[in-house]
Write a protein that binds this DNA or RNA. Structure first.
Lengths: 200, 200
DNA sequence: ACCTGAACACCGTTCAAGT
DNA sequence: ACCTGAACACCGTTCAAGT
């Protein structure tokens, strides 16, 4: 046995980190494994599936390992906004830790809204509606954060290559929002909307 | 003058509606205009810009036309959660009205978080933090909704081609959440978190 | 100003064939 | 079981050249 499915996922994550999502092609993943592109299809049916496996890997450490038996009874939910807040922060950090991780996870996760470990855990803490709201907000916010960072990195590159500070490209665009702090405030808004429980 | 930039955007939106985002290539847009692919680059610097122009078109009717002068003073915000709620519904409907519209708009809009007409208007109604939270939630929720619909349409296609109800593919997957109703509930959670104002 | 034609450097996926 | 080699039907973008 030369390569396993896990080898393929690992190689794909290396390519993602090194080259970004737009360059994370099947052909480059194959090259990372010193293998022909067609060999990948022995381990994975298509690129979409590979991306979903990568997404699982990226968020693997986020949700506690405790197995949940069955869907929680809505009436049985014991609200715990503090734990929900921490889980959302962990999720966001996990996505931000990998280049273009938010895009990878958000795309794959939206595809199976309602059946992820993180969503199940969140639902136990704040109910199904709150869980969905928190999850969607966290995905979109992480995507925006990563996009802003990438734009800043690109702008820094341009500036280095001859564009002096104060040049047309840099004039008029107001200072960007701090999306790390903004996330916490948005999270607090949603949590505050979930009920009268105080959770500071 | 044979084609204007607006002709290109219109053609691209037609291709998007007819073929979906993954098939909305520069080459197909060119074909829609009976023109060589290279001709498009006379009107638009690259595909990313074209997608941004399409996004602007999709949400053009959402924000009121009233010109806003300057950034609203945070202290001067007169909370109006009811108006914010309606604006979010309008935004979501505009995205859902176009095939893959949520993806197109969310990607382009995340790129310029903080400088869209819709966000400015929302910020007037609920403040900057509330506006960002509502906007991100609405984008992600619309993306999830459109993805679920597409999956359902695909599933229906499969079922039509020989898969009887009760077949392996359809057994075990629980009934999907109604994301149209779910959106309203999530919106109410966020709005409730924005302050003590009642808005029913 | 707007477009053609040809090219460059890529894609995802399939499939027969090898070991 | 795992992989190669070759092919198919595509991509976005550039650039000289036409009108």
């Amino acid at each position: 046995m030369r390569n396993s499915r896990n080898d393929v996922v690992s190689a794909a994550l290396r390519v993602l980190e090194a080259q970004g999502l737009e360059n994370c092609s099947m052909r480059r993943v194959a090259a990372e494994l010193d293998v022909q592109p067609s060999a990948l299809y022995h381990h994975v049916p298509n690129k979409q599936t590979l991306l979903a496996l990568m997404a699982d890997e990226i968020v693997a450490e986020v949700a506690p390992v405790v197995a949940v038996r069955g869907v929680p009874d809505t009436a049985a939910v014991i609200p715990n906004p503090g734990a929900a807040r921490e889980l959302c922060h962990r999720l966001r950090n996990a996505m931000l830790a990998v280049r273009d991780g938010a895009d990878v996870v958000a795309t794959a996760a939206a595809f199976r809204l309602g059946r992820s470990a993180v969503e199940d855990r969140l639902a136990e803490l704040v109910g199904a509606d709150g869980a969905r709201t928190l999850l969607l907000y966290t995905f979109a916010q992480a995507q925006a954060t990563q996009m802003q960072r990438q734009a800043e990195a690109f702008g820094a590159l341009l500036a280095q290559h001859g564009t002096a500070p104060g040049d047309p490209a840099g004039v008029g665009d107001p200072e960007p929002v701090d999306l790390d702090e903004s996330f916490g405030r948005g999270l607090d808004i949603v949590l505050a909307g979930l009920g009268p429980v105080s959770f500071t």
